[in-house]
């Protein structure tokens, strides 16, 4: 199939679903579907670092926050100007331009944050890297908490709603295709070689620092885009949405599905998001169940539910023992 045909069909399908979905499944389920989509973007992108490159980051929520707040403030403060410049377009196109501007800014800002965090911290290994990324995520959150122009501890309200099913799942598709293509190219093999054996990878001419930073930046950019979509859907942002527990949940998604597998990340994102919603009425008990489930999966099936199994071609096994 020609690539442009695929994308054309995808766009048409998404547009058709957007126009009918909310009526079909109701506003509440529609919202869950959106959340699932955003979590898929986050999980698949995080998998690039944690699953393929083998670096353990637990600071994804930080980049998610950078994207969300960047996009929201661009649209909130610069929106009127952009609308003015595009006044000749119909409303829906103006919205699209605004959202795309927000997404673009979010990707750039989160990418820069990823680069700034990645360069120094990727010299560290394993647990140290994990705790430093967690620390960076928390620093970002505390910084946001202290910037009054974006709401500080009150939260950022009044963000225009621009994203919807169409946009979220368009980005889901782009994320999945991008990560899939990337891991099946020389870049992906370089990432995996670092995960398998960093010293051997260096000896074979893989500039491990460069590739690690690269996977960090790409992953952060997608997290930023997810943030933009989130803010422009919920119309309100609060630093507490970006606590390190958010990063924990993302880790859980990719681990439950199986590290280093795109399908696994998708499955994990869907399962975790839906399960948490379905059991919402049980209050704290749902999270008790959920955490016990997580512990049991890790004890009885550490390779995740899908493990090394993949739907698409080239299979990549679970990460090597350390």
């Amino acid at each position: 199939m020609k690539k442009w045909v695929f994308w054309l069909v995808a766009l048409a399908a998404l547009a058709a679903m957007e126009s009918s979905l909310r009526g079909l499944i109701g506003a509440y389920n529609y919202q869950i579907v959106i959340l699932v989509g955003i979590n898929i973007i986050l999980a698949v992108s995080l998998n690039l670092i944690n699953g393929y490159t083998g670096q353990f980051s637990i600071g994804h929520a930080g980049f998610y926050a950078v994207g969300a707040y960047t996009s929201a403030s661009l649209v909130f403060y610069g929106g009127p100007a952009i609308r003015g410049a595009t006044a000749f377009l119909p409303q829906i196109a103006q919205n699209a331009v605004l959202l795309l501007a927000g997404i673009f800014a979010a990707a750039i800002a989160a990418g820069i944050a990823g680069w700034a965090v990645g360069i120094p911290s990727l010299r560290l290994r394993g647990d140290y890297l994990a705790i430093v990324t967690l620390g960076f995520g928390e620093i970002i959150r505390v910084l946001i908490l202290n910037i009054d122009a974006i709401g500080g501890s009150r939260g950022f309200s009044g963000i225009p709603q621009l994203s919807n099913f169409f946009w979220v799942y368009l980005v889901v598709l782009i994320t999945v295709v991008t990560v899939h293509n990337l891991v099946n190219s020389s870049y992906g093999r370089a990432f995996i070689s670092i995960r398998d054996d960093e010293i051997a990878a260096e000896a074979m001419g893989v500039d491990t620092t460069r590739y690690k930073v690269m996977s960090f930046v790409i992953s952060s950019m997608f997290a930023g885009i997810a943030g933009s979509l989130f803010g422009h859907y919920t119309m309100y942002l609060h630093p507490n949405s970006f606590l390190f527990t958010t990063s924990f949940y993302l880790i859980i998604m990719i681990v439950i599905g199986g590290l280093g597998s795109i399908e696994g990340a998708i499955l994990g994102a869907v399962l975790v998001t839906v399960l948490l919603e379905v059991f919402r009425e049980f209050g704290a008990f749902r999270l008790v169940n959920f955490s016990i489930l997580l512990v049991l999966i890790m004890i009885y099936r550490p390779q995740g539910l899908l493990g090394a199994w993949t739907l698409f071609r080239p299979r990549k096994a679970a990460p090597a023992a350390k």
Binding site: I192, S193, D196, A203, A317, P319
Partner: peptide, 23 residues
């Protein structure tokens, strides 16, 4: 650094085999 040395033209094998095990 090792990767630059490799690109300048030195390559090696390892005493305790270090293949990429998931590839």
């Amino acid at each position: 650094k090792p990767s630059s040395i490799a690109s300048l033209g030195i390559s090696r094998t390892f005493q305790n085999i270090r293949l990429f095990r998931s590839m």
